[in-house]
């Protein structure tokens, strides 16, 4: 992936992170939380140009759930509302037991993709999401068994070491697909020079996805488009459309990044093209 891909007008995969597990309707009432709300949002973002939906599960009151059954309800709703969008489950879960982190992988059918957090990150002032190498390896092993493509979530520069280490330890199917994440706290500082360093430091042949938190979502998505990567937007990562203006929907955020990609000469990938690019 490189600037050449931009010049060549290669298709860009848009992933929509619909709900997340950190904030919810208390932050923006338009965050979908129930399976039906998430399913409807998936249909809207697919129509807007997203080919992948990144999913978390919640209890009826918006709190986190890691239950396979809850993910199944969500997947069933997503499939009712979409044509053939790629389903990607989160395996993230600050403070949750390792056994629970596996449960999103066990739906029937399994998700085509699942996230794999590459290492620790701080939450609030007194909590760390550990994501040990042991957990990374066990989640990856189950993904391989179930035919699930890992999306390597690279929250900071040290996590790129973890990507290279994972490749040395385990056999990852081509292409390696890494989401480069920029924002506050433990994340890579959201500056263009760090973005350029990150994409240059990925393993040969890797494909990258670009994720900026909050107000960094649009500029970093734009850089991802310019430098041949793919993009992730959605209410999980950013509840605002503009400073001080809450986003109306996930689709509103997808529509904007689709306009940017098309204006810059990169067509948005269809779901078939996304599957081909990702090797699904």
């Amino acid at each position: 992936m490189s600037y050449e891909a931009f010049l060549d007008g290669d298709p860009v995969i848009v992933t929509a992170a619909l709900t997340g597990g950190v904030h919810g309707k208390e932050a923006n009432p338009n965050v979908p939380e129930t399976p039906e709300e998430i399913g409807r949002a998936a249909g809207e973002v697919e129509a807007a140009g997203a080919s992948v939906v990144h999913l978390h599960a919640r209890r009826p009151n918006g709190e986190r759930s890691f239950d396979t059954e809850r993910f199944q309800e969500i997947d069933d709703a997503v499939r009712r509302h979409t044509d053939d969008v790629v389903i990607q489950h989160s395996t993230g879960g600050t403070g949750a037991p390792d056994a629970d982190r596996h449960r999103p992988l066990r739906t029937d059918p399994p998700p085509e993709m699942a996230s794999l957090d590459m290492g620790p990150l701080n939450r609030y002032d007194h909590l760390t999401s550990e994501n040990t190498r042991g957990l990374v390896d066990s989640l990856h092993a189950e993904m391989v068994d179930r035919g699930i493509k890992p999306e390597l979530e690279v929250f900071n520069d040290g996590h790129r070491n973890e990507v290279h280490g994972l490749l040395a330890r385990r056999d990852l199917a081509d292409p390696v697909y890494a989401t480069l994440i920029f924002g506050p706290g433990t994340l890579t500082r959201p500056r263009p020079e760090h973005f350029l360093t990150a994409i240059a430091d990925l393993p040969d042949g890797a494909t990258f996805n670009t994720l900026g938190f909050g107000r960094h979502q649009l500029p970093f998505a734009t850089m991802g488009i310019l430098f041949g990567g793919h993009v992730r937007v959605g209410l999980e990562d950013n509840v605002y459309y503009e400073r001080g203006e809450l986003a109306e929907s996930n689709a509103q955020l997808v529509e904007r990044v689709v306009r940017v990609a098309e204006e810059l000469g990169r067509p948005v990938a269809t779901t078939d093209e996304a599957r081909e690019i990702l090797g699904l």
Partner: peptide, 16 residues
């Protein structure tokens, strides 16, 4: 109202 992830801390769920 607190974030859903913080609610897990409030409830002492998991290892929180």
């Amino acid at each position: 109202f607190v974030q859903p992830m913080r609610a897990d801390i409030c409830n002492d769920r998991y290892a929180l």
